[in-house]
Simulated assay, not measured.
Amino acid sequence: MSSKTKIVVFHMKEIIYTAIFAALGILLILLLLFMFLPGHTKGKQTSKDYKPGIYTASMTLNNTPLEVEVSVDKNHINSIRFANLDESVETMYPLVQPAMEEIAGQIIKSQSTDKIKAGEDDSYTSNLILDTIQKALKKAEAD
């Protein structure tokens, strides 16, 4: 009887490289499937319908009235700024303008007032500004 025994020699380095490349290939395929399959909603933005125009809302800081002006078109928030901010108010409240710029930038980028991060140093001012912006946007919403 003749036995036909075959001896196969594997090098451990080749097995490890093959396993690593197979795992990377599977990971790449899963990543591509996750990114390109329908139903992936992370990057989608829901836009509201607005009546185009410029809308204002008032806020008061220590008996000083300030007007927040929000400019919108049909589907986008275009700009947010103070309408009547003078030097005396900026001097008395130095955090007002930087807080407005930070909040306006976040809102214009996301086109929503949800999940806006207020600064730690000016959380009261930021929340007051955000509430005023929401009032102006509520005026702008289409029925």
Score class of each variant (00 low, 15 high):
22 A>D: 10
24 L>D: 08
25 G>C: 10
25 G>F: 10
25 G>N: 08
26 I>C: 11
26 I>A: 11
27 L>M: 13
28 L>H: 09
31 L>V: 10
32 L>D: 06
34 F>C: 02
36 F>Y: 01
36 F>T: 03
37 L>G: 03
37 L>C: 00
37 L>Q: 03
38 P>L: 01
38 P>C: 06
39 G>Q: 03
40 H>V: 05
40 H>S: 06
41 T>A: 00
43 G>P: 03
43 G>D: 06
45 Q>H: 05
48 K>T: 09
51 K>G: 10
55 Y>V: 07
57 A>Q: 07
57 A>V: 09
57 A>F: 08
59 M>K: 10
59 M>P: 05
60 T>N: 11
61 L>H: 14
64 T>H: 12
66 L>S: 02
66 L>E: 02
68 V>H: 01
69 E>I: 08
69 E>P: 07
69 E>N: 08
70 V>W: 04
71 S>G: 12
71 S>K: 15
73 D>P: 00
74 K>Q: 12
75 N>I: 06
77 I>A: 03
77 I>E: 04
77 I>N: 05
78 N>T: 12
78 N>Q: 12
78 N>F: 08
79 S>H: 12
81 R>V: 12
81 R>M: 11
82 F>G: 02
83 A>H: 08
84 N>C: 03
85 L>H: 02
85 L>G: 01
85 L>K: 00
86 D>T: 07
88 S>G: 07
88 S>P: 06
89 V>C: 05
89 V>I: 10
90 E>S: 11
91 T>F: 13
92 M>W: 15
93 Y>L: 07
95 L>P: 03
96 V>K: 01
100 M>C: 04
100 M>N: 02
101 E>K: 12
102 E>C: 07
102 E>T: 11
103 I>C: 00
103 I>N: 01
104 A>K: 05
107 I>Q: 01
108 I>W: 04
108 I>K: 04
109 K>Q: 06
109 K>R: 07
114 D>L: 10
114 D>T: 14
115 K>Y: 08
120 E>P: 14
121 D>I: 14
122 D>R: 11
122 D>M: 12
125 T>M: 08
125 T>A: 08
126 S>N: 06
128 L>S: 09
128 L>Y: 12
129 I>H: 04
129 I>W: 05
130 L>C: 03
130 L>S: 02
